[in-house]
C-alpha cells in the first residue's frame, strides 16, 4: 500500500518529458504535474484504507444487500455509506500522504519560484540556503494547514458517541 514518492516522481517525469509519451502536453514543471504526482502517491492510501474499512463491516450486510438484488454500484455505495467515518479517514490519510511528500513534487514541478514552488519544496530550498526564518515560517504554516484540514475531515467523520455516554 503506497508507492515511494521518488519513484512516482521518476515515472511521471519520464511520461511527461518533452520527448516522452505525453511530452506534447507540456505538463512537466507545472502545478498540474505536481497534482498528478501527489494523486499517484495518495491514491493507493485511499484505496487501501477504504478496503480495510469495508472489510470490518458485518458480512451479513453484504449478504443482505446481495439478497436485495442491489446492483454493483448500489452495493458499493451502500457499503461506503455504512463505513462513511472510516472512508473519510481514508481520505484524510490520503491527504496526509500528499502533504507530507516532497520528492515527487520537487521532481515533476522543478521548484520554480512563482510557478511550481509550494510549501514543502520551498522548505527544502530555504533550509538548503540557510534562510531559516522563512523555512521555519513555512513549516509552521504547513503544520497549521495539515491540522486544519484534518480537523475539518475529522469533524465531518466524527464517530458516533459511545453507547451510554
Amino acid at each position: 500500500m503506497g508507492l515511494p514518492p521518488v519513484l512516482v516522481g521518476l515515472v511521471v517525469t519520464l511520461f511527461l518529458w518533452r520527448t516522452g509519451p505525453f511530452g506534447a502536453l507540456g505538463l512537466l514543471d507545472t502545478p498540474a504535474a505536481m497534482a498528478l504526482a501527489q494523486f499517484l502517491v495518495a491514491e493507493p492510501i485511499a484505496a487501501g484504507f477504504t478496503r480495510a474499512a469495508l472489510g470490518l463491516l458485518e458480512p451479513d450486510l453484504l449478504a443482505a444487500l446481495r439478497v436485495d438484488g442491489a446492483g454493483r454500484l448500489a452495493l458499493g455505495w451502500e457499503l461506503v455509506r455504512a463505513a462513511s467515518p472510516q472512508v473519510l479517514l481514508a481520505v484524510a490519510a490520503a491527504f496526509g500522504r500528499a502533504i507530507s511528500e516532497v520528492g515527487a513534487s520537487l521532481m515533476v514541478g522543478g521548484n520554480i519560484a512563482g510557478q511550481t514552488r509550494i510549501l514543502t519544496t520551498a522548505i527544502v530550498l530555504k533550509t538548503d540556503r540557510g534562510n531559516f526564518a522563512l523555512a521555519i515560517a513555512l513549516g509552521m504554516v504547513l503544520l497549521a494547514l495539515a491540522f486544519l484540514v484534518n480537523v475539518a475531515l475529522g469533524w465531518s467523520a466524527r464517530l458516533p458517541a459511545p453507547a451510554g455516554a
Partner: peptide, 26 residues
C-alpha cells in the same frame, strides 16, 4: 498554491481510490 495542488490531488485520490478500495473489498 500548496492548497490548490493538495486539494486537487486529494479530491482525485478520493474519487478514484475509494471506488478502487470498494472493488478490492467486494
Amino acid at each position: 498554491r500548496s492548497l490548490i495542488v493538495l486539494l486537487t490531488a486529494t479530491a482525485l485520490a478520493a474519487v478514484v481510490g475509494v471506488p478502487v478500495g470498494v472493488a478490492l473489498a467486494i
